[in-house]
Nucleic acid binder design. Structure first.
Lengths: 164, 164
DNA sequence: TCCATATATTTCATATATGAAATATATACG
DNA sequence: CGTATATATTTCATATATGAAATATATGGA
C-alpha cells in the first residue's frame, strides 16, 4: 500500500468535518509534496558520490542546457526555482569545487556570468549514465501515453498556479 | 508564457547533447519542483497573518484529519513527509503558540501524543475559508475530469517512486 | 532476571534557504 | 549633465531542515 493512503484517509476525515473543504485540490497539493520529497531525496542520494547536492546538480544542468554553457545568477534563479541569495551560495560552493567559473560581464557591469568549467562538464559526463537510469526507473511505471498526459496536465496546473 | 518554457528549452538542448537523456521523465521531475515551490510559497503567504508556516499548517491539518485529533511524532513524520527531528521542532513551535498539546502516552512510555488544542481547532476554523478559496483557485484551470485524471496519474507516479 | 536488540523521541551540530539591507551599476528624465 | 529610480548581485542575520548521537523505554529470548 502506498505511503499516501493515511494522508488521503485524513483528508477524507477533514472533508467530513469541513464540508467546504475541496478534497481533490487538497489531494493534488499533498501528492505534489510527497512526490517532490521523494524526487529530491533520491537525487541527493544518487549524487552523493560526486559530492554535490540536488540543487547544485540543477545549477550545473541549467548551464549545460544553455548555448555557451553560461547564465547570470538571476537567470539561474528563475530557471532553477531558487532565490537569488541562494544562487550566490550555491555558486560559491560550485566555484570552490572548480565546477563552474564566475566572471564579470563587460556589457553590463552589474551582471555576473556563471559558466561551466571543463571539470564541471567532465563531471556531468561522468554522472549522466546514473542520472538517466534514475529518471527511467522513476517513470517506469507509467506508459508513454500516461507520461505525455501527465506532462500536459502538470503544465496546465502550473499555468493556473502562476496566473491565479 | 509560462515560467517553465526556458527550463523546457534547456532540457531540449540537454537532449541534443546527451542522446541518452530521457526528456519526458526529466520534464516531469522539473515540473514537480516548480509546482511544489509555487504551492509552498502560496500557502506560506496565505498563512502569514495567522503566524504559522506551511509545514506547521500541515501538522495541524494532519491532527485535524485524525479521529481524536491526536498523533505521535512518528506518525506525523510519515503523514507530513518530515523527518522526526523536524517534527520535534515544529511541535515545539506549535506548543509555544498554544495550538497543540504534548502529553506522554501511558500505554507505551516511549511515545508522545501531540493533540490539537481548543485554540488550534479555533484557528483552523478561522483560516479554513481562505484555505478553501486558495485550493479552489489553484485548480480552477482544470476541468473535473482533468483533476481526476491528474490525481490518478500522480498516485501511479508516486507508487513507482516508492517501489523502484 | 538479565541482557541484547529494537523502537520512539529528542538533542545538538551542521547544512540549507530566506528576507531585508547593502553595494554597485545602469537607465531615464528633468 | 545630475539626480532619481530601476536592476543585478551579494552580505548578513535569521529561519528551517537534516544526520548522527544521545536518551529512554519496550520486547524477546537465555
Amino acid at each position: 500500500m502506498s505511503s499516501f493512503a493515511p494522508t488521503e484517509q485524513r483528508l477524507a476525515v477533514t472533508c467530513r468535518r469541513q464540508p467546504a473543504f475541496p478534497r481533490q485540490p487538497a489531494v493534488l497539493v499533498r501528492l505534489i509534496k510527497h512526490l517532490h520529497k521523494r524526487v529530491h531525496d533520491d537525487a541527493n542520494a544518487l549524487l552523493k558520490p560526486w559530492g554535490i547536492s540536488h540543487p547544485e546538480y540543477n545549477i550545473l544542468m541549467m548551464l549545460y542546457g544553455t548555448e555557451g554553457y553560461a547564465l547570470n545568477p538571476s537567470q539561474l534563479a528563475e530557471a532553477a526555482g531558487e532565490k537569488s541569495a541562494n544562487i550566490t551560495r550555491l555558486a560559491d560552493s560550485l566555484c570552490d569545487k572548480g565546477l563552474i567559473e564566475r566572471t564579470a560581464s563587460d556589457e553590463d557591469r552589474r551582471k555576473v556570468s556563471l559558466s561551466l568549467s571543463r571539470r564541471g562538464l567532465a563531471m556531468i559526463d561522468d554522472f549522466m549514465p546514473a542520472i538517466c537510469a534514475l529518471l527511467e526507473r522513476q517513470t517506469a511505471g507509467l506508459k508513454a501515453a500516461e507520461t505525455a498526459q501527465l506532462e500536459r496536465l502538470l503544465k496546465k496546473f502550473l499555468d493556473q498556479l502562476e496566473q491565479g
